[in-house]
C-alpha cells in the first residue's frame, strides 16, 4: 500500500471512530453524565462591563452562595471558563474586547446578558458610545432584565441555564 492510500485509509477510519464516539456519547446515559458534569462546572469569566457588577458581587456573596451550583467565585484564566456574564452596558470600546474574550473561551460556552443595558440598551440607549445589540456580538442564552437585576434574579437565570444544559445535545 502506498503512503497516500494508507493515509486515506487511516483518515476514513479516524473519522468513523470519532463519529462512533459521538453517537455513543450523544445518546443514552453517557449524555446525561456529560451534561450533568457541565451543569456543575459553570465557571464565570471575570470581566465586568459596567455597574451591574455590584449585584454580581452580591450574588457571589454569602447570602446566595452560588458555589452550591458549582460556580466558582473567581476562576483564574479564560481557558477554564465556560460562562460569560455580560454585566451591564457594553460600550463600543469594550465590545471589541468582549468579542475577543468570547472567542477565546473553550466550547461549550454560555452567555447570560445581565441588566437592561445588555438586553436592549436600557437607560443609556441613546448615548454615542453604547452597543445596543449585544446579541449581535454572540448568541445569548439567558436574558436577565432589571437595572440592576436583583441577585436572586441572576441566580434564577443560572438555574435556568443549568436546566438548558441538562437537556442539550452533547455535540450541538
Amino acid at each position: 500500500m502506498s503512503q497516500d492510500t494508507l493515509q486515506d485509509f487511516a483518515g476514513v477510519w479516524i473519522g468513523k471512530m470519532s463519529e462512533l464516539v459521538q453517537t455513543i456519547i450523544g445518546s443514552g446515559p453517557i449524555k446525561y453524565i456529560v451534561n450533568w458534569s457541565r451543569m456543575y462546572a459553570l465557571w464565570p469569566v471575570h470581566i465586568t462591563t459596567a455597574c451591574c457588577s455590584a449585584e454580581f458581587g452580591a450574588m457571589m456573596g454569602p447570602r446566595l452562595d452560588p458555589e452550591r451550583f458549582g460556580m466558582q467565585a473567581v476562576a483564574g484564566g479564560l481557558r477554564q471558563c465556560d460562562l460569560l456574564i455580560v454585566e451591564g452596558t457594553v460600550t463600543k470600546k469594550m465590545a471589541k474586547r468582549l468579542k475577543i474574550v468570547y472567542e477565546q473561551m473553550p466550547k461549550p460556552r454560555y452567555v447570560i446578558a445581565m441588566g437592561d443595558c445588555a438586553c436592549s440598551g436600557g437607560l443609556f440607549h441613546d448615548s454615542y458610545s453604547i452597543v445596543n445589540d449585544v446579541h449581535k456580538l454572540f448568541p445569548i442564552d439567558v436574558y436577565v432584565p432589571g437595572c440592576p437585576p436583583r441577585p436572586e434574579a441572576l441566580l434564577s437565570a443560572i438555574v435556568k441555564l443549568r436546566e438548558k444544559i441538562r437537556r442539550q445535545e452533547v455535540f450541538a
Binding site: V45, H46, I47, T48, T49, S53, L78, M94, R97, V101
Partner: peptide, 8 residues
C-alpha cells in the same frame, strides 16, 4: 480589561 481582579 479582563483580569482576575476587576474589569473595565
Amino acid at each position: 480589561p479582563q483580569h482576575p481582579g476587576s474589569g473595565h
